[in-house]
């Protein structure tokens, strides 16, 4: 796979605070890379650097969009976290304005817009003003605005925030669709379930520094331990003395047993005493969500 964006050692400070500290990663053509991290981790600053809105103090960003190493804004789409559009302007006018800023042919943009209006339940509203639309509808228009010019690289910052569950599913499908058609997507989000189901690879950042980077499965293999939930009347101190157990949390009648690193579930099950009461049992690998929480609370350092 070819690299479409490569970031090397970028650092950005605002006054005394170093917001992004020697960050490097690559985005490959056609993949969905998840950029994850808590609030204030530096995600938005990285995105703004990539989009050329601000410039890093040091380090380089190379693009492979049009044969040069430079940023070609016409080939990049962006859905910012701060949602908004000119309130007093008509939907179609805004979309065409953005297409013109991206040097995209207007008649083609109009066709693309109409196709999306149809798909996203906005048909017949193209002359409506943004202020006349519901919040959800306005967000749909903004999504269309980010892809109206068929970008090669699409940067989505919290793309699903503010959508109802039905629309969330619709847009998850649409994002997958775009990736299959060859659009490279950099997706920044807190919603780990979405990142897990959409992204091939993730880059996790905390306090401006890289925490995790790589293939999602590999990361899970490396960092994700297993956890076993058991519903039943058991003594937690006894459970915690079982072999391979790292710690036990209690949640009512339910005990959550965290296994030690590198222990396979079958090894743990073999050692389970027969007199333990099991009404329900759930054995899973811990999710990206758990990894995220551990990271932020200082569980994982790299």
């Amino acid at each position: 796979m070819s690299v479409i964006l490569s970031i090397k050692d970028i650092t950005k400070s605002f006054g005394q605070a170093t917001v992004v500290d020697r960050i490097s990663f690559e985005v490959q053509k056609g993949e969905i890379l998840g950029l994850v991290g808590p609030n204030g981790a530096g995600k938005s600053t990285i995105i703004r650097c990539i989009l050329g809105i601000i410039h890093p103090d040091s380090g380089t960003i190379n693009y492979h969009l049009d044969g040069t190493q430079k940023l070609n804004t016409s080939k990049v789409g962006y859905l910012p976290e701060e949602r908004g559009l000119y309130r007093d302007a008509k939907i179609m006018d805004i979309l065409l304005y953005i297409a013109s800023l991206k040097n995209y042919p207007l008649d083609k943009a109009r066709q693309t817009a109409m196709a999306y209006f149809e798909k996203l339940d906005l048909k017949g509203r193209e002359k409506a003003k943004i202020e006349e639309l519901s919040k959800g509808m306005a967000q749909k228009v903004q999504f269309i605005a980010s892809i109206i010019h068929e970008p090669q690289l699409l940067v989505l910052d919290e793309p699903l925030s503010g959508f109802d569950p039905v629309s969330q599913n619709l847009f998850m499908e649409e994002i997958k669709n775009l990736a299959t058609k060859g659009t490279t997507i950099l997706l920044s989000s807190h919603q780990m379930n979405m990142v897990e189901s959409l992204c091939n690879r993730i880059f996790m950042i905390n306090k401006g520094r890289r925490v995790l980077y790589g293939d999602l499965d590999t990361i899970k293999d490396r960092y994700a331990n297993y956890r076993c939930e058991i519903l039943g009347n058991n003594d937690p101190s006894r459970l915690s003395k079982l072999p391979f157990v790292q710690k036990v949390e209690q949640d009512g009648q339910k005990h959550i047993i965290h296994l030690q690193n590198g222990i396979s579930p079958s090894a743990f099950l073999r050692e389970l005493p027969p007199d333990i009461e099991i009404k329900e049992m759930n054995l899973t690998r811990i999710s990206l969500h758990d990894i995220f929480v551990k990271t932020v609370t200082g569980g994982i350092e790299q």
Binding site: L51, I53, P80, G84, Y86, S146
Partner: peptide, 10 residues
């Protein structure tokens, strides 16, 4: 209108 970022990315 929070259009700044969209415009400045172009």
């Amino acid at each position: 209108d929070k259009m700044v970022e969209i415009i400045l990315s172009s």
